[in-house]
Structures are given as structure tokens and as C-alpha cells.
Simulated assay, not measured.
Amino acid sequence: MGATQAPPVPQAPYGQAGYGQQPYGQYGQQVPGRAPGPVIDPQGGWGSQPQNMTNEQLQQMYNQPAAGPADTGRMTYDDVIVKTAACLGVLLAGAAVTLFVSMGLASMLMIVGALGGFVLALVNTFKKQPSPALILAYAGLEGLFLGGLTRILDGMFPGVGLQAVIGTLSVFTVTLVLFKSGKVRATPKAMKFFMIAMIGYALFSVVNLVLMMTGLQTDMFGLRSGWVGVAIGILAIGLAAFSLIMDFTSIEAGVQSGAPQRFSWTAAFGLTVTLVWLYVEIIRLLAILRGDE
């Protein structure tokens, strides 16, 4: 299913070492068609009139609205929303493919999507500059994985796919509302707990996978069955929800610090990774609960 935590959006103010450009709002920087900031003239000092410009031209420039983040190439919330929507659209398209093929081919596409998505998740995570093509390719492969998984589990437990979609949207909405209200934040203490819980969850998942592959565990979800599976599932959903908080925090910091616009793709990738993880945990928990009925 890929990595469970994407790289954060750069939070340092745009223009610091590493980006190779001047900070936004630097005195003397002007944006075509927008009102200029204070102009520094080496000879005349503050407020000196630019050469070859009449008073009428200056007045017209100052009457223009101030340059916003989009005009200066900075990351905005709208950028993140649009690019996240693009990722989810490609993901849904990939999932739809599995609905129009045989069950055997859908299972194969699920495996291809899982392995390919995992590889591209690692590539995108460690890539210094975001690549829209690779991020969208990741979304498409994860769509194949989720589509195949949903088709298999929904065939065994009718309606579980729709329930998982509703559950994912509900957790996302509640988490966003709590974040916007300031009631839940990625504090250092919470981050420490998150990392400890993630390490424990990862170790359990690896052990469970090995036992299933070696045939020592024959249940569908291995050790994740019965009350143990329910408890682990609830913990995993909680971790995924907190990962969303970390994504929101990273996006907020990136926008406020004026990160370059291209890093909105990094933010969209992070949200997509977390939503995929959240959906998988919810549908697995629902399948465990339905299997115990």
C-alpha cells in the first residue's frame, strides 16, 4: 500500500538557503501588473521614482491590487486542493479499471498496484523536487490496488466498500474540523507518541506478514483477527488520522512561510498517501468485524 507518511512541505521562508531566490516581499521586487513595493534607489533613497515613468503611470501602478501568493509563485491552499483533487481523480480512475475486468485480472492488477505504488511512494518520498508525473502515477497504481482490494472484500462482505468510503470521508472531515478549530495539533509530545506507536505497528505488521507468507498463520488477516485485529485496526486508524493532522500542519506551515508553488504537489502526495492508508485500515477493520459475525 505504499509508505504511510509522506515528506513534509518545506517550511522555511522562501528565499532562504536551499531555494536560491530572494524572500517574497523583498524591497524593490515588483510583479508585472501589480502594485510595486517600496523602491530603493542607490542615489535617491526611499521612494525615488523609477526612471522613464511618468506620475500618471506610477499612480496607475499603485492603484493596482497588491500581488497575492499566486502572483508571486507561492504555494496556496487552492493549489493544494486542486492538485489533491487531481491525484484522487486519477486514483478513482485506476480503481474503476478493476470493475470492468475479470476477478482474476483484478487480483493481478491489485498486486501490480500494491508493488508499483510502494516503489513510487519511496521514490516520491526521497525525491528532492516533486514530480507531478510520478505523483500522479503513484495515485493511479494505488487506485488499481484499492479497486482490486475493494472488489475482493466487497464480494465476501457485500457493502463493505461503500462503508469504507463513508468511513474514510468521515474521519477526514472530523480531523480537518478539529485541526481548524485548534483542538488537535501536532505537538512535540503527540509526535513522540506517534513515532513510538508507528514503530510498534510497523514491527507487528512485518511479523504478521512473515507468518502469513510462511503459512504459520492461515487466517485471512493473520494475527489481525478477533479482538486483537479489532484493537490493532482501531490503533491504525488513529495513527492515520494523526498523520492527517501532520499533513495539515505541513500544508499550513508551507503556505505561511511562502514555499514555492511546486511544493503543493508534495502536499497533495502526502494527503493521498495518508488517505490510501486510512481507507485500507478502515476496510480491513470492517472486514474483520463482518467476519466475526
Score class of each variant (00 low, 15 high):
Gly222His: 06
Arg262Cys: 00
Leu211Trp: 02
Leu134Pro: 09
Ala70Tyr: 01
Thr214Leu: 03
Gly143Asn: 05
Pro32Gln: 01
Met198Thr: 15
Gly28Asp: 13
Tyr62His: 13
Ala241Val: 10
Ile282Lys: 03
Leu134Ser: 14
Phe269Ser: 02
Gln11Asn: 02
Leu271Trp: 03
Pro10Phe: 02
Ser131Ile: 01
Phe269Ile: 00
Val31Asn: 01
Met156Glu: 10
Ala231Gly: 13
Ile232Cys: 09
Gly159Trp: 10
Thr168Trp: 12
Cys87Thr: 07
Ala287Cys: 12
Val228Glu: 08
Asp41Met: 00
Pro13Asn: 06
Gln22Trp: 12
Lys128Pro: 08
Trp46Lys: 09
Gly33Pro: 13
Lys127Asn: 15
Leu105Pro: 05
Val255Met: 07
Gln129Ser: 13
Gln26Met: 08
Ile288Asn: 03
Ala267Val: 05
Leu92Ala: 15
Met212Gly: 02
Leu88Phe: 14
Gly44Thr: 05
Asn52Arg: 04
Leu176Gly: 04
Ala121Ile: 10
Thr266Ser: 15
Lys183His: 11
Ser225Glu: 12
Val177Gln: 05
Ala268Asp: 10
Gly33Asp: 11
Ala114Glu: 04
Met103Phe: 09
Ser205Ala: 15
Ser170His: 00
Thr175Gly: 09
Tyr19Lys: 07
Glu281Ile: 00
Gln49Lys: 08
Pro130Trp: 05
Gln5Trp: 04
Gly254Cys: 06
Pro23Gln: 05
Ser225Asn: 12
Ala186Arg: 07
Pro188Leu: 04
Met103Cys: 00
Leu109Trp: 04
Leu91Tyr: 10
Met156Asn: 06
Leu120Val: 08
Met53Lys: 10
Gly47Leu: 04
Thr76Arg: 06
Leu153Cys: 11
Gly167Ser: 11
Ile81Asn: 13
Asn208Arg: 03
Asp78Val: 12
Val112Leu: 15
Gln21Pro: 00
Ala35Arg: 15
Val177Ala: 14
Arg151Lys: 14
Pro65Lys: 09
Pro8Phe: 02
Met61Thr: 00
Ile152Val: 14
Ala86Lys: 02
Thr266Met: 13
Arg185Ser: 09
Thr125Ser: 03
Leu144Pro: 01
Gly20Phe: 06
Ala253His: 03
Val255Arg: 01
Leu153Lys: 02
Gly226His: 03
Ser257Val: 00
Ile245Gly: 06
Met212Ile: 08
Gly47Trp: 08
Ile199Asn: 05
Pro69Arg: 14
Asn63Ala: 15
Leu244His: 07
Arg290Pro: 04
Gly116Lys: 01
Lys183Arg: 15
Gln29Lys: 10
Pro69Phe: 07
Gly148Gln: 09
Thr274Cys: 11
Val9Arg: 00
Asp219Phe: 06
Thr187Leu: 13
Ala35Gln: 14
Trp265Lys: 02
Ala70Met: 10
Lys180Pro: 01
Asp247Trp: 01
Val97Met: 13
Thr218His: 07
Ile237His: 11
Met195Glu: 12
Gly238Met: 11
